[in-house]
């Protein structure tokens, strides 16, 4: 194998880590039954926060931590509102998405206009490999948590049928808050990697916008399964990272190449719904449903 090919394959590390972590965070959160349409807005905020925090602290790790913290705050807010109040998940998600788009610009643009520097993770093959290993380890842990622990069972129960879950002994609000916290921690981390490792360029407004949706599609096309998501994230990341290679190789227009991941997501959704995988990877039954129990005073 020649070095160029290795670089092409491994160079995808940061992109993979960014999309993969965001996608499993999204999947984890949605497993608890909350339709997560705020993802793109929070991802955009995460990018802005990562940029600013890394710049001020002088280290990329600080950027990741800050993005994680801010994203967690959003996650908790969404989980709380969508569980506690009879609110449309779609409405609250998209509203917060808009807020996120706006806040990202407010946070990063003034700084960018005063300081022309970027602090990022180092870029070399070793780091690329580290990103891949790190994110896969996290993915395996998330998979373990979801499929083997009581917490995982509680999250899935809350997503499948929150009323039944509650009578089985699950505190739905608490479980969804935990899912929101963990899920958005990963989304924040993913956003920080997107900027600090994959595309470390001087910040420009709107950076990261649309990438959250790609992660959304990645997660959806793998049925929100953390291990299967490795595959779909890899395919998407390779398609995005190597789009120029692909373009030359297949002779496709750059625009069509960029379209492929989205088409793939649509096709994947159709495949899931018409094959036996439907049962295995079906979306949580209560996803996006208002969970509201009439409470009466004693």
């Amino acid at each position: 194998m020649n070095a160029g090919l290795i670089a092409i394959i491994l160079g995808v590390g940061p992109a993979f880590a960014a999309y993969y972590l965001t996608a499993i965070g999204h999947g984890l959160f949605e497993k608890s039954g909350i339709l997560n349409l705020a993802i793109d807005g929070v991802f955009t905020v995460g990018v802005a926060v990562a940029y600013v925090a890394a710049l001020f602290a002088g280290t990329a790790v600080a950027g990741s931590v800050a993005a994680l913290v801010v994203a967690v705050a959003f996650g908790l807010l969404i989980a709380y509102l969508a569980t506690k109040l009879p609110i449309s998940h779609g409405a609250i998600g998209l509203s917060i998405m808009f807020v996120g788009y706006g806040l990202a610009a407010l946070i990063a643009v003034p700084i960018r206009s005063q300081i022309n520097a970027v602090v990022s993770y180092p870029m070399n093959v070793g780091v690329d490999i580290a990103f891949i290993i790190f994110s896969i380890v996290i993915g395996v842990l998330v998979h373990y948590m979801l499929s083997r622990t009581k917490l995982g069972a509680a999250i899935r129960a809350a997503g499948e049928n929150p009323h039944a879950a509650s009578s089985l002994g699950v505190n739905v609000l608490r479980v969804r808050l935990i899912a929101g916290m963990l899920g958005y921690a990963l989304i924040g981390l993913g956003a920080s990697f997107y900027f600090l490792a994959y595309t470390p360029a001087p910040y420009s407004e709107g950076m990261g916008m649309g990438q959250g949706w790609i992660a959304f599609a990645i997660s959806l096309s793998a049925g929100r399964h953390p291990i299967l998501t490795i595959l779909s994230a890899l395919v998407f990341a390779e398609l995005l990272y190597n789009k120029f290679v692909l373009q030359g190789y297949l002779g496709l227009s750059v625009h069509i190449t960029k379209m492929i991941p989205y088409l793939a997501a649509l096709v994947a959704m159709v495949i899931f719904m018409v094959t036996p995988l439907k049962r295995k990877l079906a979306p949580p039954r209560a996803l996006g449903k208002i969970y509201f129990k009439e409470e009466r005073t004693v």
Binding site: G41, L81, L85, P86, I87, S88, A91, I92, L94, S95, I96, M97, F98, V99, G100, Y101, G102, L103, A104, A105, L106, V109, P110, I111, R112, S113, Q114, E205, G206
Partner: peptide
């Protein structure tokens, strides 16, 4: 302080986003 560099689109998002979020919660 560099806020002049913020695009009108982003400013619109801030306004619209907050109104929409408030409305979503209040309409309950």
């Amino acid at each position: 302080g560099g806020s002049a560099m913020i695009s009108s689109g982003a400013l619109t998002y801030v306004l619209i986003g907050f109104v929409l979020t408030t409305f979503t919660v209040l309409r309950v």
